[in-house]
Amino acid sequence: MFEAQTNTTSTDAARVPTPLLQTRSLGFEAGGQRLIDTVDVDIRTGRRTVIMGANGAGKSLLLRLLHGLIRPSAGQVLWQGRPLDRAGRYAQAMVFQRPVLLRRSVLANLSFALSARGIRGRERKRRIEIAMHQARLTALAYRPARVLSGGEQQRLAIARALACGPEILFLDEPTASLDPASIHAVEELIAQAHANGVTIVLVTHDLGQARRLGDDLIFLHGGRVVETGPAATVLDNPKSGPAKAWTEGRLFFESDPWNRSQRLGDRS
Protein backbone atom coordinates (compact mmCIF):
# COMPACT_ATOMS: atom_id res chain seq x y z
CA MET A 1 0.00 0.00 0.00
CA PHE A 2 1.16 3.51 -0.79
CA GLU A 3 1.53 6.22 1.78
CA ALA A 4 0.58 9.62 0.40
CA GLN A 5 3.57 11.92 0.17
CA THR A 6 3.01 15.46 1.37
CA ASN A 7 5.19 17.65 -0.76
CA THR A 8 5.09 20.99 1.09
CA THR A 9 7.42 23.59 2.50
CA SER A 10 7.00 25.33 5.87
CA THR A 11 5.96 28.61 4.18
CA ASP A 12 3.14 26.82 2.33
CA ALA A 13 1.89 25.23 5.51
CA ALA A 14 1.86 28.55 7.33
CA ARG A 15 -0.90 30.02 5.15
CA VAL A 16 -3.45 27.23 4.95
CA PRO A 17 -6.97 28.58 4.32
CA THR A 18 -10.08 26.77 5.62
CA PRO A 19 -10.99 23.65 3.61
CA LEU A 20 -14.15 24.20 1.60
CA LEU A 21 -14.45 20.55 0.75
CA GLN A 22 -12.91 17.55 2.48
CA THR A 23 -13.01 13.82 2.07
CA ARG A 24 -12.63 11.43 4.95
CA SER A 25 -11.48 7.86 4.14
CA LEU A 26 -13.43 8.11 0.89
CA GLY A 27 -13.87 4.83 -0.97
CA PHE A 28 -15.75 3.63 -3.99
CA GLU A 29 -16.12 0.08 -5.21
CA ALA A 30 -17.63 -1.28 -8.42
CA GLY A 31 -17.56 -4.77 -9.88
CA GLY A 32 -15.66 -6.05 -6.85
CA GLN A 33 -12.86 -3.57 -7.48
CA ARG A 34 -11.84 -0.72 -5.21
CA LEU A 35 -11.63 2.20 -7.61
CA ILE A 36 -11.22 4.92 -4.97
CA ASP A 37 -9.38 3.80 -1.88
CA THR A 38 -9.24 5.65 1.45
CA VAL A 39 -8.89 9.11 -0.04
CA ASP A 40 -8.39 12.03 2.37
CA VAL A 41 -8.08 15.36 0.63
CA ASP A 42 -8.74 18.99 1.51
CA ILE A 43 -9.92 21.44 -1.13
CA ARG A 44 -9.10 24.87 0.19
CA THR A 45 -11.32 27.90 -0.30
CA GLY A 46 -10.28 30.16 -3.14
CA ARG A 47 -7.54 27.81 -4.35
CA ARG A 48 -7.12 26.08 -7.67
CA THR A 49 -6.61 22.38 -7.06
CA VAL A 50 -5.41 20.19 -9.88
CA ILE A 51 -6.04 16.44 -9.82
CA MET A 52 -3.62 14.43 -11.94
CA GLY A 53 -2.79 10.81 -12.56
CA ALA A 54 -2.60 8.24 -15.31
CA ASN A 55 -5.66 6.90 -17.13
CA GLY A 56 -7.73 4.81 -14.75
CA ALA A 57 -6.23 6.42 -11.65
CA GLY A 58 -9.72 7.48 -10.52
CA LYS A 59 -9.54 11.23 -11.22
CA SER A 60 -12.96 11.64 -12.87
CA LEU A 61 -14.49 9.28 -10.33
CA LEU A 62 -13.08 11.33 -7.46
CA LEU A 63 -14.48 14.49 -9.06
CA ARG A 64 -17.95 12.90 -9.30
CA LEU A 65 -17.73 11.78 -5.66
CA LEU A 66 -16.70 15.29 -4.57
CA HIS A 67 -19.66 16.76 -6.49
CA GLY A 68 -22.06 14.20 -5.03
CA LEU A 69 -22.99 12.72 -8.41
CA ILE A 70 -22.24 9.26 -7.08
CA ARG A 71 -22.51 7.86 -3.59
CA PRO A 72 -19.29 6.68 -1.94
CA SER A 73 -19.04 3.06 -0.79
CA ALA A 74 -17.05 4.20 2.23
CA GLY A 75 -16.14 7.42 4.03
CA GLN A 76 -17.71 10.76 3.37
CA VAL A 77 -17.48 14.09 1.61
CA LEU A 78 -17.69 17.14 3.86
CA TRP A 79 -18.83 20.52 2.58
CA GLN A 80 -17.73 23.32 4.92
CA GLY A 81 -17.26 20.72 7.62
CA ARG A 82 -20.69 19.09 7.26
CA PRO A 83 -21.84 16.12 5.16
CA LEU A 84 -22.53 17.23 1.59
CA ASP A 85 -26.27 17.94 1.22
CA ARG A 86 -28.58 19.58 -1.30
CA ALA A 87 -27.57 23.10 -0.27
CA GLY A 88 -23.92 22.15 -0.67
CA ARG A 89 -24.62 20.65 -4.10
CA TYR A 90 -26.30 23.91 -5.15
CA ALA A 91 -23.12 25.78 -4.27
CA GLN A 92 -21.20 23.58 -6.72
CA ALA A 93 -21.09 23.27 -10.49
CA MET A 94 -19.38 20.87 -12.84
CA VAL A 95 -18.14 20.93 -16.41
CA PHE A 96 -17.65 17.59 -18.12
CA GLN A 97 -14.94 16.54 -20.56
CA ARG A 98 -17.51 16.33 -23.35
CA PRO A 99 -19.92 19.24 -22.93
CA VAL A 100 -23.48 18.06 -22.33
CA LEU A 101 -25.66 20.63 -24.08
CA LEU A 102 -29.40 20.57 -24.56
CA ARG A 103 -30.77 20.42 -28.09
CA ARG A 104 -31.63 24.10 -27.92
CA SER A 105 -30.07 27.49 -28.53
CA VAL A 106 -27.13 28.90 -26.57
CA LEU A 107 -29.50 31.23 -24.75
CA ALA A 108 -31.99 28.44 -23.95
CA ASN A 109 -29.18 26.31 -22.49
CA LEU A 110 -28.24 29.09 -20.09
CA SER A 111 -31.86 29.83 -19.31
CA PHE A 112 -32.60 26.17 -18.51
CA ALA A 113 -29.74 25.90 -16.01
CA LEU A 114 -30.78 29.06 -14.20
CA SER A 115 -34.44 28.01 -14.09
CA ALA A 116 -33.39 24.69 -12.57
CA ARG A 117 -31.76 26.70 -9.78
CA GLY A 118 -34.93 28.75 -9.32
CA ILE A 119 -33.44 31.91 -10.86
CA ARG A 120 -36.04 33.67 -13.00
CA GLY A 121 -37.14 37.00 -14.42
CA ARG A 122 -34.77 39.95 -14.56
CA GLU A 123 -32.05 38.26 -12.52
CA ARG A 124 -31.98 35.36 -14.99
CA LYS A 125 -31.76 37.74 -17.92
CA ARG A 126 -28.93 39.66 -16.25
CA ARG A 127 -26.95 36.51 -15.52
CA ILE A 128 -27.44 35.19 -19.06
CA GLU A 129 -26.12 38.43 -20.53
CA ILE A 130 -23.06 38.39 -18.25
CA ALA A 131 -22.39 34.70 -18.97
CA MET A 132 -22.61 35.15 -22.74
CA HIS A 133 -20.42 38.24 -22.59
CA GLN A 134 -17.75 36.53 -20.48
CA ALA A 135 -17.69 33.47 -22.73
CA ARG A 136 -17.82 35.67 -25.86
CA LEU A 137 -20.95 33.93 -27.05
CA THR A 138 -23.28 36.93 -27.31
CA ALA A 139 -23.24 36.88 -31.11
CA LEU A 140 -24.19 33.18 -31.03
CA ALA A 141 -27.10 33.55 -28.58
CA TYR A 142 -29.73 32.10 -30.91
CA ARG A 143 -27.50 29.50 -32.57
CA PRO A 144 -28.36 25.84 -31.79
CA ALA A 145 -25.80 24.84 -29.14
CA ARG A 146 -24.91 21.60 -30.85
CA VAL A 147 -23.72 23.21 -34.07
CA LEU A 148 -21.11 25.26 -32.18
CA SER A 149 -17.43 24.32 -32.44
CA GLY A 150 -15.91 22.16 -29.70
CA GLY A 151 -14.29 25.22 -28.10
CA GLU A 152 -17.50 27.25 -28.20
CA GLN A 153 -19.45 24.34 -26.74
CA GLN A 154 -17.01 24.01 -23.86
CA ARG A 155 -17.09 27.77 -23.25
CA LEU A 156 -20.87 27.58 -23.14
CA ALA A 157 -20.71 24.68 -20.67
CA ILE A 158 -18.38 26.69 -18.42
CA ALA A 159 -20.48 29.86 -18.79
CA ARG A 160 -23.60 27.86 -17.89
CA ALA A 161 -21.90 26.44 -14.80
CA LEU A 162 -20.64 29.86 -13.71
CA ALA A 163 -24.01 31.55 -14.35
CA CYS A 164 -25.40 29.47 -11.48
CA GLY A 165 -23.01 31.35 -9.16
CA PRO A 166 -21.11 28.40 -7.69
CA GLU A 167 -18.61 28.65 -4.86
CA ILE A 168 -16.67 25.77 -6.38
CA LEU A 169 -16.28 24.69 -10.00
CA PHE A 170 -15.27 21.15 -10.93
CA LEU A 171 -13.76 20.71 -14.40
CA ASP A 172 -13.10 17.26 -15.82
CA GLU A 173 -10.44 17.60 -18.52
CA PRO A 174 -12.24 20.57 -20.07
CA THR A 175 -9.64 21.13 -22.79
CA ALA A 176 -8.91 17.49 -23.66
CA SER A 177 -9.90 17.71 -27.32
CA LEU A 178 -9.52 21.42 -28.06
CA ASP A 179 -7.15 23.38 -30.29
CA PRO A 180 -4.56 25.70 -28.65
CA ALA A 181 -6.62 28.88 -29.17
CA SER A 182 -9.72 27.26 -27.65
CA ILE A 183 -7.62 25.92 -24.75
CA HIS A 184 -6.40 29.46 -24.13
CA ALA A 185 -9.98 30.82 -24.16
CA VAL A 186 -11.16 28.12 -21.72
CA GLU A 187 -8.19 28.75 -19.42
CA GLU A 188 -8.98 32.46 -19.48
CA LEU A 189 -12.56 31.73 -18.39
CA ILE A 190 -11.30 29.53 -15.56
CA ALA A 191 -8.80 32.21 -14.48
CA GLN A 192 -11.56 34.83 -14.56
CA ALA A 193 -13.84 32.65 -12.43
CA HIS A 194 -11.03 32.12 -9.95
CA ALA A 195 -10.36 35.86 -9.84
CA ASN A 196 -14.05 36.29 -8.97
CA GLY A 197 -13.59 34.06 -5.95
CA VAL A 198 -14.65 30.67 -7.31
CA THR A 199 -12.67 27.72 -5.95
CA ILE A 200 -11.44 25.56 -8.84
CA VAL A 201 -10.93 21.80 -8.95
CA LEU A 202 -9.48 20.73 -12.29
CA VAL A 203 -8.69 17.29 -13.64
CA THR A 204 -6.08 17.51 -16.38
CA HIS A 205 -3.44 15.48 -18.16
CA ASP A 206 -1.71 18.60 -19.41
CA LEU A 207 1.44 19.37 -17.39
CA GLY A 208 1.61 22.92 -18.77
CA GLN A 209 -2.00 23.54 -17.81
CA ALA A 210 -1.40 22.13 -14.34
CA ARG A 211 1.48 24.60 -13.89
CA ARG A 212 -0.52 27.50 -15.32
CA LEU A 213 -3.74 26.89 -13.41
CA GLY A 214 -2.78 24.86 -10.35
CA ASP A 215 -2.10 26.13 -6.86
CA ASP A 216 -2.41 22.73 -5.18
CA LEU A 217 -1.97 19.32 -6.76
CA ILE A 218 -3.40 15.94 -5.85
CA PHE A 219 -1.74 13.01 -7.59
CA LEU A 220 -3.74 9.79 -7.82
CA HIS A 221 -2.53 6.30 -8.61
CA GLY A 222 -4.73 3.21 -8.51
CA GLY A 223 -7.52 5.10 -6.75
CA ARG A 224 -5.23 6.34 -3.96
CA VAL A 225 -3.69 9.71 -3.32
CA VAL A 226 0.05 9.15 -3.64
CA GLU A 227 1.21 12.75 -3.46
CA THR A 228 -0.15 16.19 -2.58
CA GLY A 229 1.37 19.61 -2.36
CA PRO A 230 1.79 22.90 -4.21
CA ALA A 231 1.47 22.17 -7.92
CA ALA A 232 4.81 23.69 -8.88
CA THR A 233 6.67 21.81 -6.13
CA VAL A 234 5.13 18.43 -6.97
CA LEU A 235 5.68 18.85 -10.69
CA ASP A 236 9.28 20.14 -10.32
CA ASN A 237 10.33 17.63 -7.70
CA PRO A 238 7.91 14.70 -7.41
CA LYS A 239 8.59 12.43 -4.46
CA SER A 240 6.33 9.51 -5.28
CA GLY A 241 7.19 6.95 -7.96
CA PRO A 242 3.95 7.33 -9.94
CA ALA A 243 4.18 11.16 -10.01
CA LYS A 244 7.87 10.96 -10.94
CA ALA A 245 7.11 8.53 -13.77
CA TRP A 246 4.27 10.76 -14.91
CA THR A 247 6.38 13.92 -15.10
CA GLU A 248 9.03 11.96 -16.99
CA GLY A 249 6.41 10.80 -19.48
CA ARG A 250 6.67 7.08 -18.78
CA LEU A 251 4.26 4.47 -17.48
CA PHE A 252 4.53 3.41 -13.88
CA PHE A 253 4.45 -0.34 -13.17
CA GLU A 254 3.73 -2.20 -9.96
CA SER A 255 7.22 -3.72 -10.13
CA ASP A 256 8.96 -0.32 -10.19
CA PRO A 257 11.46 0.21 -7.34
CA TRP A 258 9.48 2.97 -5.59
CA ASN A 259 6.46 0.77 -5.33
CA ARG A 260 8.46 -2.20 -3.97
CA SER A 261 10.13 -0.06 -1.35
CA GLN A 262 6.74 1.35 -0.28
CA ARG A 263 5.40 -2.14 0.19
CA LEU A 264 8.42 -3.05 2.32
CA GLY A 265 7.86 0.07 4.33
CA ASP A 266 11.32 1.28 3.36
CA ARG A 267 10.89 4.90 2.34
CA SER A 268 14.54 5.89 2.77
Binding site: H67, L69, R89, A93, M94, L102, F112, A116
Partner: peptide, 13 residues
Protein backbone atom coordinates in the same frame (compact mmCIF):
# COMPACT_ATOMS: atom_id res chain seq x y z
CA UNK B 1 -28.08 8.48 -20.59
CA UNK B 2 -26.51 11.57 -22.12
CA UNK B 3 -28.20 14.16 -19.89
CA UNK B 4 -28.48 12.43 -16.49
CA UNK B 5 -25.20 13.62 -14.94
CA UNK B 6 -25.67 17.16 -16.21
CA UNK B 7 -29.21 17.26 -14.80
CA UNK B 8 -27.94 15.93 -11.46
CA UNK B 9 -25.16 18.52 -11.46
CA UNK B 10 -27.60 21.35 -12.20
CA UNK B 11 -30.04 20.03 -9.57
CA UNK B 12 -32.95 19.62 -11.98
CA UNK B 13 -36.04 18.21 -10.24
Amino acid sequence: REYAEQFASLGVG
